[in-house]
Amino acid sequence: MPKKIEAPDKSRRALLKCMVLGSAGGMLWTVSGGVPRAIGLGGEALAATSGDFAFVQISDTHIGFHGEANPDPNGTLQQALARIAEAPIRPAMMVHTGDVSHLSKPAEFDTAQQMLKTAGLETHFIPGEHDTLVDQGKPFFERFGKESTQGGWYSFDQGGVHFVALVNVLNLRPGGLGYLGPEQLEWLEDDLKGRSASTPIVVLAHMPLWSVAPEWGWGTDDAAQALLYLKRFGSVTVLNGHIHQVIQKVEGRITLRTALSTAFPQAAPGTPGASPGPLKVPADRLRSLLGVRQVDIVKDKASPAISDTRLGA
């Protein structure tokens, strides 16, 4: 259920900006002094112009979705891209944390690719389970996996940050959750080996790397092993998608955050009678179920500063 607005320090105008942003998803991240800081794409971004390096996370665009929860996912993606273009800080690049398409159809990938291109940003992709419905994700990887290894996962360095892009939507096992698999875990251990603990790490994975709601499949079976390899680093930020809402967990120096979708909301875990599918709400309530979270992950601080803005009554 939507909470009452909890932002007494924000002006009405800022809240309206948040509302617009919230309806379209998208999160701008800045890295200042090697520490990622999440900021909304609205007016509050002005307060964070000191960042050396900014990037955008977009997720769960579900191009091809045709359900009642959003009759126009192209339109809402367009709106999200417009927000990115208007951001006061020009991001250096964009990451897409999966479910680019709804049904892995070539036409859906085409549309998504053409639309995302208009952002004019280098974009790094990882697949969601909707992108790998056929041929173990071959159509997705052929188009969006130029930089990936054989298994689909990869890493790169930018702005002083080491990015690790993981695939946890393939070879899913009966009764299980998301799955990384021993081969990928071995690669991850090797990829991180020898890196200085002071290197800021950003991990991308579609399904949450912690058990948000196992009864809904919202988690990853073997995430613990991955987090074990990551825990020696001073700053680790895990960016997930999949659940179409912002939820955060902090484990030591690892902060795990899920992202909003640009397509449709999903119910909060534990909502009685709900299922993990698209949440159908009246059109005029759609935006009220979305929102933004601003988090500052500050070096040497035990916990990040978080401000949630959930919009609508």
């Binding site: 045709h66 419905l133 899913l172 096992r173 009764g175 959750l177 196992p214 499949g217």
Partner: peptide, 29 residues
């Protein structure tokens, strides 16, 4: 194959036994 809304899939069981299955997209199902 992936079944979109309204799609159906059929299989005829010709031998006795217990057949377990799951959704490969949402394996908790």
């Amino acid at each position: 194959p992936p079944l979109d809304t309204g799609d159906a899939f059929a299989f005829t069981f010709d031998k006795p036994g217990t057949y377990r299955y799951f959704c490969s997209i949402h394996p908790h199902m």
